[in-house]
Nucleic acid binder design. Structure first.
Lengths: 188, 188, 188, 188
DNA sequence: TGGTAAACGAGACGGTACGTCACGTCTTCGC
DNA sequence: GCGAAGACGTGACGTACCGTCTCGTTTACCA
């Protein structure tokens, strides 16, 4: 019966979180600051989110997932993999994206429970893409039967995360090398 | 005639940091708490370290580096790689090691500069081990000439870090799969 | 056409105020708490009362005025005065009454304007009683012509208030002493 | 060994409390505001005082006690009493003094325990003055043997408090009347 | 007897102050 | 003269109420 939750306030907070991360490290973001930036009372934040990390989580889930939006599916496996790595690498040229990724990592390092949940959700698209794409390749006889798609996907995500963490996107050369080695590793 | 820096105090602080990390996340560790735990004044800490992260760095460098102490060098490449991944995976069964690794990641996420320095130092042994071991294998004709040892090493470290971050050590099965795929990827 | 003000809600609030004061100091009473206790919405309170103090005022005016209900009027002045002081002193044995009196004092200390209005109303019966009783005594020749009834009444109220404030009701002995001295002071 | 408590900070807080009371009611004074006004951190206040009331108490004890500094002791009892009431009445013309007195009353209404302690200390000089002065008068035969000095003193303080609370200082006329009645009441 | 408008409960909202915690700096004194 | 102890100003924490503002629901009057 009471007044319904203000979607405006919710979006303002999530957006403030994204803006704050673009300028500061996750550790430097304060709830006080978010409230001020979003022109929302602290109480409103505490009413709806249990922690700073939860706000980040929601902001991530609503926003574009780092490295999970470009899921190419042509009929050339090599070029698809290269395309994904390249997209990730390009995205890591944008500091806002890098900071989002780092924030996600920082949250996970501090609160593995929540981090795992977020990872679950953010990695899922990549995992299903890899599974689908490799499935097709296997049917085409391009890939071994015993290939473990999840292992490959985790490997991709690990490499992307590590690159984001250190702020060193994979170079085009290294992407080529890596994709070649992977293909040889899983090829029929 | 000044009194020289107290090595005892220094060790007490580093050890307090290690003990604190065994019980709490890096973010939950406070300088105030370290000082109390180490029975050292805050001033002593501030005199010798510029930040909490620096203490962690020094503690890491003095302690055993996670996943960098077992660098096997037999004449069987496959078993050497498996041995390394297994050692890392075993070490990740120990929560203290995991927390150290997570702390390192958290620091890097917050302060990439310092994180990169630490990473440099901690990853170096792994990188040189991979370079040396693959060099030998290449001489033996077991590995392609164009293999990029650093790329491989980074891939290893990325996978180990990601596993530590999520608290999900690689299973024996996945290690086998992964090593097989890598060998196929880089094999002559 | 509209729904009329709910007398039930009004009484619930006033009663909640009285109950709250029986357990806590006036400063510790909150409108939020009153609303919950009275099972009334905050809005209903704010619709009908401008302040917490106003609720207290109404509660006081509806309830029994502390020290203003026993206004004895026999033909023995000394015993009448003793009776009043004794009644007040007895009432101050009841903690609920004391807290009501303290609340009145607290309101007055914070908002002298409103406090004066309340005092006006609550003290009026005492003042008229003193005026009437002393008038009779003067006619009987028991009391000087120049006696200032209001001054005497104020003195009574001041003593009662001070006793309530400190939680030290006048002892029987002191009442006797005081009444004797007063009678000598105003006696013909 | 540590740094000793800063007397400067202490005085700044007490003085800020006195200034704040001169402008607002005690209830409207906030610790936050005191800290800002005194240019002192909240922590410093909380380190040394358990409550806002305690600050007021210390401020009162260090400052001039309302109505307790003019304790006349000539050889004319009537004029001494008149002098005291007049001094109190005059002091109540100064709004700062009135607000201090009201604050004291407000504290007592909220926390009778602490209020009683403060009252003890602040009333003591008056009580001893009354005892001494009436003692002299009794020796001179001006006053009855059975007079209860404490009862008289409490009566004085009650009247002064009540006047301060309502902001209605006793008029010269009423002082005369009152002192006359008291003298008749206690006179030999 | 059904419409309607105010009063109601519930509670979300932007705020302010609370009392606590840790920060990084400083001052004092003892070893 | 280093180091412990700890006071200091600063500022974020998470909580409690403030007074205002929607929300649907309920209910007394009037047509």
């Amino acid at each position: 019966m009471p007044r319904p939750r203000s979607e405006k306030a919710r979006q303002a907070v999530l957006s403030a979180m994204r803006r704050a991360l673009a300028e500061d490290s996750y550790a430097a973001v304060t709830i006080e600051g978010l409230a001020a930036e979003a022109e929302v009372s602290k109480q409103t934040i505490y009413r709806w989110w249990p922690s700073k990390a939860a706000i980040l989580g929601e902001a991530l889930l609503e926003g574009e997932l780092p490295g999970a939006d470009a899921l190419p599916m042509t009929d050339d496996l090599a070029s698809d993999l290269r395309a994904w790595f390249t997209a990730v690498s390009d995205q890591q040229g944008d500091s806002a994206s890098v900071e989002l990724a780092r924030a996600l990592i920082a949250v996970t390092a501090t609160d593995p429970e929540l981090g795992a949940q977020l990872n679950e959700r953010l990695a899922a698209p990549v995992r299903t893409w890899v599974a689908t794409r490799l499935g097709l390749a296997r049917e085409a006889g391009d890939v071994r039967d015993d290939v473990d798609a999840d292992a490959i996907a985790d490997q991709f995500i690990a490499m992307a995360s590590y690159a984001a963490l250190l702020g060193k996107p994979l170079s085009a050369d290294r992407i080529d090398h890596t994709v070649d080695a992977i293909l040889r590793g899983i090829g029929a």
